[in-house]
Amino acid sequence: DEVTIHLGDKTIRVDGLDKELLEILKELARRGADEEELRKEIERWER
């Protein structure tokens, strides 16, 4: 499953996201997290 996250004018595509992680990323994005913060969160989950 590829998920596309839209952040204002930026788009991040991620393969096979965990549903819980997806919810966390959506919440972070709502709070104004930037792409770098979201990537760090994704990397934390992948470990």
Rank of each mutant, 00 (worst) to 15 (best):
I42G: 01
L17M: 11
K19F: 08
I12W: 00
L21N: 00
K19I: 10
E36D: 14
E20K: 14
R30P: 00
A29C: 08
G8V: 10
R39G: 02
E27K: 04
I5W: 00
R44W: 15
E35A: 12
D34W: 02
A33G: 07
E46M: 06
I24A: 06
D15F: 00
L28S: 02
E41D: 00
R31A: 15
A29Y: 05
W45F: 09
L21S: 01
L38N: 00
E36I: 11
L17G: 05
L22G: 04
D18H: 14
R39T: 04
E35R: 04
G16D: 08
R13M: 09
R44F: 10
L22T: 06
D9L: 03
E43K: 03
K19T: 11
I42W: 04
K19Q: 12
E41T: 11
I12H: 03
E20I: 11
E23Q: 12
G16F: 11
L22S: 04
L7D: 05
R30D: 07
K10T: 15
D34K: 14
H6R: 14
A33I: 04
I42Y: 04
K26F: 08
E36P: 05
I12S: 02
I5Q: 04
L28M: 15
D9R: 02
A29W: 06
T11S: 14
R47G: 15
D15S: 15
E43G: 04
K26Q: 15
V14C: 09
L21A: 02
G16I: 12
R13T: 13
H6S: 14
L38E: 00
T11D: 12
R47M: 11
D18V: 11
L22K: 07
I42V: 04
V3R: 08
K19H: 11
L25I: 07
E2D: 10
R39D: 02
D9V: 05
D15E: 14
A29N: 05
I42H: 01
D15Y: 00
A33L: 07
L17E: 03
R31H: 11
I24R: 14
E20L: 13
V3N: 14
R44C: 08
V3M: 13
D9Q: 07
D18P: 14
K10L: 14
E2S: 14
L38V: 12
E46G: 09
I24L: 12
R30V: 07
T11Q: 10
D1P: 12
D18A: 15
R30F: 06
W45S: 03
K19C: 06
E36S: 11
D9C: 05
K19M: 09
E37Y: 07
R44E: 14
E20N: 10
L38M: 09
D15M: 00
L7M: 07
K40W: 04
E27H: 07
I24M: 09
L25A: 00
E2R: 07
K19S: 13
H6N: 14
R39M: 13
E41P: 00
K26S: 08
L7Q: 06
V14M: 09
H6C: 09
R47P: 14
L22F: 08
V14Y: 04
W45V: 05
G8E: 10
G8W: 01
V3C: 12
D15P: 14
E46P: 15
G8A: 10
E43C: 02
V14F: 15
K26C: 03
K40E: 07
K40I: 06
